[in-house]
């Protein structure tokens, strides 16, 4: 971990009562700060609670929310809920995989894009939906995937990623 990351983890641990039940809350807080859970952070958390790193890792890997590699600059989430699926969500996901050359859960080598699928974000009226860094792109189609990526690329070149974080 970098110096900043170590400090962020310490800050989270200091603000939390040392009760085993807060484990998930702590992991959430660390991920909120760092964007992912580095292995060293998991070790720190284990020391904090006096439990084994395996137990912490076991809990962290059980829940879908936690990730162990940093996200891309643009984190693309394709909704695969029932409504999105029935409106062609799989074709949209395929299009992203094809265009970016990565699979779900992966990050492009330049760390610009990461791709993820999610169960349902509750925007079923706008299906199929894609969320990029919190911004919702409604009624997606495979064709619109290229448009979205072109837009993100342009924003990246302008250095404009104000939606992030």
């Amino acid at each position: 971990m970098s110096k900043e990351e170590v400090e962020a983890v310490e800050e989270v641990l200091e603000s939390c009562p040392r009760e085993r039940r807060h484990l998930i809350r702590i992991l959430q807080a660390i991920q909120e700060k760092l964007g992912y859970l580095p292995e060293d952070a998991l070790r720190e958390v284990a020391l904090f609670f006096g439990i084994s790193p395996a137990e912490v890792y076991g809990v962290a890997t059980f829940y879908n929310q936690f990730r162990f590699v940093p996200l891309g600059k643009f984190h693309i989430v394709v909704c695969m809920g029932t409504a999105c699926h029935s409106m062609g969500g799989a074709l949209v996901l395929d299009a992203f995989q094809r265009e970016l050359g990565i699979k779900v859960g992966e990050v492009t080598p330049d760390r610009k894009y990461s791709l993820e699928r999610v169960g349902c974000i509750g925007c079923c009226t706008q299906a199929p939906v894609v969320v990029v860094n919190g911004r919702i792109f409604p009624k997606m189609t495979p064709y619109k995937v290229e448009e979205v990526l072109a837009k993100l690329k342009a924003e990246d070149e302008l250095g404009g990623d104000k939606e992030q974080g």
């Binding site: 809350r25 959430q28 829940y63 879908n64």
Partner: peptide, 11 residues
Amino acid sequence: DIEVIRGAGAF
């Protein structure tokens, strides 16, 4: 009293 617990994405 009531406390809110945030799940971590497990159906």
